[in-house]
Each structure stands twice: as structure tokens, then as C-alpha cells.
Design a protein around this nucleic acid. Sequence first.
DNA 1: AATGAATGAGAGTTCATTCAT
DNA 2: GATGAATGAACTCTCATTCAT
Lengths: 209, 209, 209, 209
Amino acid sequence: MSLSGLRVKRREAVAEMLVEAAEQVISEKGYERATMQDIATAAGCATGTLYLYFKTKEDLFNAMVAKHCSAIVELAQAAMDAQASPVGKLRAKIEATTDYFERHPQFYRVFYVAGPTVKATIQQSLHDEALEVYQALRQAETEVVAAGQRQGLVRSDIAADELVDFMHALCVGTTARWITTGRVPPRAEQTRLLWAVTSSMLGIREEQR
Amino acid sequence: MSLSGLRVKRREAVAEMLVEAAEQVISEKGYERATMQDIATAAGCATGTLYLYFKTKEDLFNAMVAKHCSAIVELAQAAMDAQASPVGKLRAKIEATTDYFERHPQFYRVFYVAGPTVKATIQQSLHDEALEVYQALRQAETEVVAAGQRQGLVRSDIAADELVDFMHALCVGTTARWITTGRVPPRAEQTRLLWAVTSSMLGIREEQR
Amino acid sequence: MSLSGLRVKRREAVAEMLVEAAEQVISEKGYERATMQDIATAAGCATGTLYLYFKTKEDLFNAMVAKHCSAIVELAQAAMDAQASPVGKLRAKIEATTDYFERHPQFYRVFYVAGPTVKATIQQSLHDEALEVYQALRQAETEVVAAGQRQGLVRSDIAADELVDFMHALCVGTTARWITTGRVPPRAEQTRLLWAVTSSMLGIREEQR
Amino acid sequence: MSLSGLRVKRREAVAEMLVEAAEQVISEKGYERATMQDIATAAGCATGTLYLYFKTKEDLFNAMVAKHCSAIVELAQAAMDAQASPVGKLRAKIEATTDYFERHPQFYRVFYVAGPTVKATIQQSLHDEALEVYQALRQAETEVVAAGQRQGLVRSDIAADELVDFMHALCVGTTARWITTGRVPPRAEQTRLLWAVTSSMLGIREEQR
DNA sequence: AATGAATGAGAGTTCATTCAT
DNA sequence: GATGAATGAACTCTCATTCAT
């Protein structure tokens, strides 16, 4: 690997570390209350150093959000692709995302602590890179639900895209509660519970029955 | 009413107005970005006046949150009391809260815009005044769900208090989506949709069938 | 005078005082080196106070420049209007401006110390308020010189507007030298010297001879 | 030439290049706004490299000013030496300096953009190297003018050293106007105009008449 | 009670300078 | 010698809070 290749690698590694420090601090204090000084201290560097890697505070925040969004979307998509049946896909997707949030509770907390910038930021940062991917995921889920409806496996009295929204609301809301209260059930239980409520909400009739 | 009684009345009326101004501004800009100057301007008074009624900015925010929490809890409790059957109670509670948020979208928005202080504040402000009432509501709901389970009207494979949490997650998450996207379905549709997903999630078998 | 009238008066008085403090500090250290803290200290107030009267540092600077430019232009115009003959007008204008700079040496120093913003600022601030007045003055001078040329009192081998530019260059440059070296000749001598060189540069033949 | 002699040569060549880069950037943005990074970029080297040749930013600036001052003084002196008569000397000096500024407009611009450091810097940097030379030039000019006065070629109602100052003011002010407005007359015209106004200001009676 | 001018601590950001590589 | 990442002091500007009127 060339010298400049090494440099790029190193730069990315440092940026990654700074993002993690930011994540740490922001998840504790919220975006507005977290100062660049705080983040620098958490990262073990000087304030000015942060600006060598990110042009503004918001930039740093965006980088963090984009990183996680991309990761989640990617995992969810992969989990769905690995399954054949609509019901299997939905279940796998729920498992994958629950899993991710459990492994990255700080990121989740950001959304409940981060404040005003979050919404604007997510939309903006996703526009740049991951929005298409994110929309594709939503599209894919809707198609899966619709397929389930056509096969009589999913309730048909509510439109597929609305069901997807309900699914998201339920999963996100539940995960939020787990993480913010600090009482996270064991993994197996998480999946069981979430799938139990989601599947009955969707009126799912399991195929193998 | 005594003179001092009138004075108290007047003081409360002014405080109420200031809270409304704060609500307006904070729901637009978020807690951190909303300045006391902004709020004073919205209320049509001077900055200093705010401090005659609230000791700090956070105090003003707390008053606003407490006001709405109390109102919601009260309405929900009343709606449940007016129904006899467990299923009726649950349905009535959902209707009552959905109703409240639709009439006070600004308050709802606060939770998605308000930022870091929200969680701390809610817990703190609820501690002070409304937490007991709020816990009582949750308790009441849990008992209703448990009663439904005993009568075979509600699924029994998940504990009553957990079902209550799922209910909350679903309702709050869905309402959030409606309000933040700005695409609020008509009232009747709201209730139909929410009840359709909630009841099937709870495995409800309607009594009259 | 009404209460709000008094308030406006007071506000203007304070703003004027702050401008003077800024003038003091900037003439010593230059625009870039003068900090808002310095200016506040010179004015005997807190940093924040400056921002109650001027939106930005540049704003404060602009206010200062605009004030002096307007004053000079006004005095110069008045001095010219008070004279009948072209030669008298030119002489009166030189006297008036020399006079002003002698009474406000700090302002003059600004132009030799203030730095990059000066040119941009002067053009911009003059655009807003005083540019037309300033252009009018230049126009008036050009006409005076042209009149002098028609009457055979001023050399005709160089265009009137160019002669005006030379006049400005000579006066400004000379005043600059006096003020920056600190060796300012007595008033009577100033006028005598400046007029001696200017009039011979303009090829002036005094009328009464 | 010895090895170390070559090294010195090389070092000077690099320093010269860096000074030119600084000149470029500072003439555009002004001293304060020009960053060492900007200059390094313009020079095609790293920030740190600048510090191998100049101890501080001000040092680099001083080097640049000193370079031009020396050059101008040298040219002016040579031009004067090449003429015999006082009037010829003055005219030749004006031609030489006008010429220099036209060939180095960036340097001239520095004085109108560079800001607070200029005065201090010029005095300081000239002290170190060129002040004596500069003073010598001024002295030489004064003697030329005095000689002109003795021969009845130059007005005698104003002291020789003051006339020299007026000459400087007029030439510098005029050149400034040309360069900052960007409307530079053709070379021949420059000399004609400047000499026309300067000579009549000095009350010069051309010898050949 | 009401005002709003004043405060000053603290935020984000920049940049001359250093130093390990 | 050359590099450029790292530093941290210093800057402009904001805003919750106070207090004389």
C-alpha cells in the first residue's frame, strides 16, 4: 500500500474514533449540550483537532448518523434477502434491527436525547448518501408485506405501506423503551416478544400451520 | 372571592399565557434554540417579566410539560372510567389520547424537537406533581388488560404490563409519525386504524362477537 | 418629549459613545487587532453590550466610518456653497477638510491602520447612505474646476475630473503624513502650505490679481 | 563556488519564492486574513516549511516589504544619478518609481490592504536593513530640490524638505488611485500627467525654455 | 408588577506555531 | 530539509439571568 494510501487509512481511523467520542458524549448530554470541548476531551485530543476532520459540529454529528443509518439499512436488507417467504423476511428484518440497536445502545439514545437537529439532520444527511438506500429498504418491506397479503398470510384491511409504518412505530417505540429505561430483556426474549406482537398486529398466519 | 384570591387567579392566568407562548416557540425551534427573548416576544411582554412567573427557563418548560401530562392523564382516566368492559376501556383510552394530541399538535411536536432536557425534565417534573397520577394511569391500564386476560378477551402469552408498554409504543410511535410528517388522517380513520392494529396486537376478541 | 422619544435619544447617545470607543481602539490597533473586548473595556461596558447596539463588529466599524464620511462631506459642501468664485470654493473645501481631520486625528489614523476591511467597508457603507452625497461632492468639485477652466483661472491641459483626483491625492497624502508622523504644522501654516501647492498644481491664477 | 555556498544560494532562492507567494496572497486578502496555510498552498509546500525560512508570519511579511523597498530605493537612486540637472533628476526619479509600481502592482496593493502591521513593519524592517538607504534617498531628493531652488528653477517659498514630502504625497496618492481603481493610464500618459502636476506644484521652470 | 438594558460566562471556530515522522 | 497533523489560545457572538427604573 502506498504512503498516501496509508495516510488515508489513518485519517479514516482517526475520524472513526472521533465519531465514537462524539457518539459517547452526545448520547449522554444531547447534541446541544455536548460541547466540542467535551468531545475533544472524550477523544483525548485538542478542540482544534476535531476541525481537521469535520468542518463543523453539525458535520461531525451528521457523520455519526450517516454511519449508523447505512449500517442498519445494509444489515436489514441482507437479513431480508436471506429469507424466501414474506413472513420470514419480516421476522428476519426485525431481528436484524433489534440486534443492531442492542449492540449500539448509545446510538439509539441519541435519537431520544439529541434534539432538534436530529430530524433535519437525518433528512439532510440521508439525502446526501443513504436516503436512496433507506427508501429502497422501505420499498422492499412494503413489497414483502404486499406479497404476504396476496398470499393470504397478512391482513388485507390495511394498506401495505401503512402496515409497514405501524411495524416501524411498534419496533422503534419498543426498543426506545427498553433502552431508555435500561431494562433490556435478553436477546431471545426480545425477538420473541417483538415478533409476537408484530405478527399478531399484522394478522399473520404462519405458513407452516 | 377575596382580593388576594383575585390576585392569585390573575397570576395563574398570566402564567398560563406565558406557558402557551413558550409552547408555541419551543415546538417550532426546540428547547435549546428557543430563547427567552423569543418567548417574551411571542407573549407580548418583556424578558424580565418571564422571570416574575418562572424562576428559570427550565422551570417554564417544566410547567408546560406538567400541564399537558396532567391533562392527558385526567382525560384518559375519565374515558376509561366511563366504560364498563376491559376492551371498551382500552379503546376509549386510545381514543381519548389520540384526540388530545390531535388538538394539541404543538405539544406533541415538543417531544420531537425539544431535545435533551425532555427526558430529564419529564421525569423530574412528573416527580414533582404528576408522576403519581401518571403511574396510577399506567397501573389502571395494566389492571384493565389483566382483567381482559382473565376473561379470555386478551392474549395471555405476554404479561399485562408488557402489553401496556407495547400499546404505548405503538400509539405514541404512530401519532409521532402522523404529526411529524404532517399527514394526519381524518379523526374517524385515526381511531379505526389505531384500534385495528392495537386490538389485533393485543389478541382481542371483541365481546359482542 | 415622550418616554420613547427619550429612550431613542438615550440609545443614540450610548451608540455614539460606543462608536467613539471603537474609534479610539481601532485607530490604535487596527480593525483586525482590535477585539470587541478591547472596545468594551474602552467604553467601560461588557462585551455583550456592544451587541445590543451593533449587530456585528463590522457593523460597529461601518457606523464609525459612515459618521465621519457624512460629516466631512457635509462640511465640505457647506464650505463650497459659502463661496462664489471657483477658486474660493476650492480653497474653502481644502480648508474645511483639513480642519476636520485635524480635529479628528483618530479617524484619520484609521485609514492608515484599519486594514483590509476599510476599502470594502467604505464602499459598502457609503453605498447605503452616504455614497450619493459623496459622489455629489466629487461632482460638485469637478464642476467647480471646470468652471475655473472656462474662466481661464485653472489650467486646461488636464481634464477637470483628473485634476480633482490629483487634488484629493495631494491633500489626503499630505494630511496622512502630518498625522502619522505626528508633526502637524499650525493651522494657519497648514492652509497656507496646502493651498500653495494645490493652487500651483492646478495652475491657478488668482482672480484679484 | 563551495558546496555550502550553493546551499546558501538555494536557500535564498527558496526564500524568494516563498516571499513571492506571500506577496500574492497578502495582496489579495490582506495581512491578517492571509493564513500561513494559504501562503503555503500558493507556494506549493507544507505549512511547516515556511517556518524553516522565516521565524514568524511577521518575519515573512517584513522580508517582502524590505525586498521591495530596497529595490525601489536602488532604482530611484540610479535614475537620479544618471541625470545632471536638478529638474532632470526629479523627473527621472518619478519615472523610475512609477515604473516600479506599475510592474509590481501586487506590492502596491499590499499597502492598501495589508493593514495595521504595515506601518510598524515598515519602520521596523527598514530600521534593520534599508532605513539608512531610504533616508539617504530622501536626503538626496531634498538636496536636488534645494539645488533647484538655488538655481531659480524651483519655487522658494516652501522649504525643500517639505516640497519633497508634497511630491511623495502626490505621487503615492495618485499611484494608489490608479492601482486600486484598476484604471491605470498607459505608461507615457502616466509620466506626462504626474510630471505635469508635480512640476507645476514645484513651480518648476524648465531649463530649456 | 413590568420593563429592557446590561451582564459575562461560555459556545463554536480559526490559525500561528510546533514537532514527530 | 520537508511534512502536515496536532495544538490551544484567542476570537466573535449568544443568551439566561439580573436589577435599576
